[in-house]
Design a binder for these strands. Sequence first.
DNA 1: AATGAATGAGACTTCATTCAT
DNA 2: GATGAATGAAGTCTCATTCAT
Lengths: 211, 211, 211, 211
Amino acid sequence: MQNQNGTRWHRRKDARPDEILAAAQILFIEHGYKATKLEDIARAAGVTKGTPYLYFENKAEILKAVVRNGLLANITRLEAAAENGAGPVAAQMRLLMQRWNEDVQASQSSGLVKLMVAEACNFPDLARFYYDEVILRARALLRTLLTRGMASGEFRADLDLDETVQIVLAPLVMALLWEHSFARFEAEPIDMVRHIDHIHDLLTRGLCTRG
Amino acid sequence: MQNQNGTRWHRRKDARPDEILAAAQILFIEHGYKATKLEDIARAAGVTKGTPYLYFENKAEILKAVVRNGLLANITRLEAAAENGAGPVAAQMRLLMQRWNEDVQASQSSGLVKLMVAEACNFPDLARFYYDEVILRARALLRTLLTRGMASGEFRADLDLDETVQIVLAPLVMALLWEHSFARFEAEPIDMVRHIDHIHDLLTRGLCTRG
Amino acid sequence: MQNQNGTRWHRRKDARPDEILAAAQILFIEHGYKATKLEDIARAAGVTKGTPYLYFENKAEILKAVVRNGLLANITRLEAAAENGAGPVAAQMRLLMQRWNEDVQASQSSGLVKLMVAEACNFPDLARFYYDEVILRARALLRTLLTRGMASGEFRADLDLDETVQIVLAPLVMALLWEHSFARFEAEPIDMVRHIDHIHDLLTRGLCTRG
Amino acid sequence: MQNQNGTRWHRRKDARPDEILAAAQILFIEHGYKATKLEDIARAAGVTKGTPYLYFENKAEILKAVVRNGLLANITRLEAAAENGAGPVAAQMRLLMQRWNEDVQASQSSGLVKLMVAEACNFPDLARFYYDEVILRARALLRTLLTRGMASGEFRADLDLDETVQIVLAPLVMALLWEHSFARFEAEPIDMVRHIDHIHDLLTRGLCTRG
DNA sequence: AATGAATGAGACTTCATTCAT
DNA sequence: GATGAATGAAGTCTCATTCAT
């Protein structure tokens, strides 16, 4: 394969692994790990069957790299975004949710969560990694925020921290899973910004009227 | 292969399909559709490779039967449980959530949701079925309750119905997914009754202190 | 299975094997030996999977019985028809050809030849049987006729007997094979009586004008 | 599996499909379509199970390729051989028959006819192809010759063209079928050149003495 | 570095055959 | 005699992986 100057391509030499991972991510999310053929990944990445093996031990390692790459970057950016907040905690929380959403959209990584849910049982060490490096860190982030809010009197003092963290995260995670499972059947696509506002509103103020 | 009577076969035509589906459900949920071998299903059901084909056309049909069987029964029981409620709507909602949980536990069907999330893309008509017959019906149920609560003044009048339904369902569904993905890494198992109470409490009263 | 008198059927007890063979013959001819399922034979014979095994050792024995039954009867009747002919040999030959055709039509056995051609390699002893008991006997019959014709001066004296026998039989056999292979593509069905007359005419008189 | 160079593969993409078809042809003719295992074809072609699938969609496509390849080439060469004949038509016919025989011997394709007869019912479109591209074209060839002979007064004018074509072809085709079914039981192998001469002689001059 | 022909274990599925009822 | 649930060997086809080029 030669470009029009007659010289071989070298430009993308270092980009290859990432191109393969990008292709693999899309296909793994779309069809699951087992149902995705390595040849499809290769083709989608613009290379041939043998090439992925130059960069990755085997198919399982590609999956692991996909997940590690995608999610570590996400959570790291999220942690950065959570630093040095000021003002009412509820507002900080809302901001953080929106930031996180923007980041997920930008990084195309929403489906990784679905992938992890689907494959957690088949890749225990990957699941462990995800639990330790993503779930626990995300929870810690939220827990800090909640604690601050409870300390300041903004949030109810009788909340169970662990439970509350789970419950707050649930609608956010579900929205991601939804996008890669049943969203296509909906009449109109979800407006995530608006949806997150609703989540924030409902979680902070509750369903019930204030008596 | 002989059973304990020294006879070669069990001869239980009527029970077989359900035994096969039960075995398949466990394995599909645990490993996903593709990664589950038919021979494993057969062995788990106490029969040999060929037997499932006496009752089901092929592997895909077994998956469909698993999902249809399990979920239709669930949603139907849920709808029955939702009828003729009286008293405060919030209390009715709490009761319904707990009923649903009991039913899911009893029917061993919690993992079906994970299965559907994982395989929605590979089985579009099954996903459609799930969307139409499970998701929409579950939403309708909740929407009725919310509407009633809003009409009675118990719930806030400014809620967006569609959004709220999604958000209320999210923690419930997430709890199921959790059980079949990362729950094993937690220090202690989730007490679902307690968890649902927390969900109900947080959703009805909100995070914030009143006033 | 009971008839309307409440008594079990016994009437066809002895007919069972023949019914099975009749069904098998049709299916073997239509699809070949391997492609015919024993269950299809059973169903076509109005019995269930296990029943053929009450009368036949296995599938191969059914094939052998089909061929033996069908062809032995044919050749025997043919030999009977060939006896005590009088008058011109060419006319006797014509009569024999037409008789043979009537017999084949009546006995529904035309496809057996195709079956034997198709399966000769896979069933050497059956092929041997067919060669010895059908082909050789049919040849002998024709050879007798030809010899008589040559002796009487009716047929050319310079004919090679073996070769001539083969060549005379060929169009007759081909017509049978044709019926079970490509006849369906023809615009109109073959009129066998007429076709045999043409065969007889061409073979006796030849293509060339008499000069 | 290693070749004699100690390397694992032959690496001969261009030759492979034909090697596979050649192996398949022999086995299909010998045992029929169903009774031939793909692994046997592969082994006979010097490759392993999976390799045929690099070049052919599935087993049925291999059969189709075998037939198409083999027969189209034959009929095409036959048509070429039939062009620009001169002299007595009977002599031309004899020459054509011998040419055809030489071609069939050289191309090892004699068994394809048997294969088609055996499998016509199971592969209707292949049979259609054979009927259209081989049978009809062969008939047309012969019909031309016969017509010429009748016009020139060499052949009888009262011949039915369609019938005659069928009858002339029959002994030629039967000889091929014979070779792949019962020839092995004969005391001595057929001398095809001589056999064709006999066919030609009998068909042109007829059985009967003149006069 | 990249290719892609080839491999071969392994999955799905079929079906001749058995035998308790 | 008849049934038909069950078996399990065997066949078709797939695809992760290898390695000569």
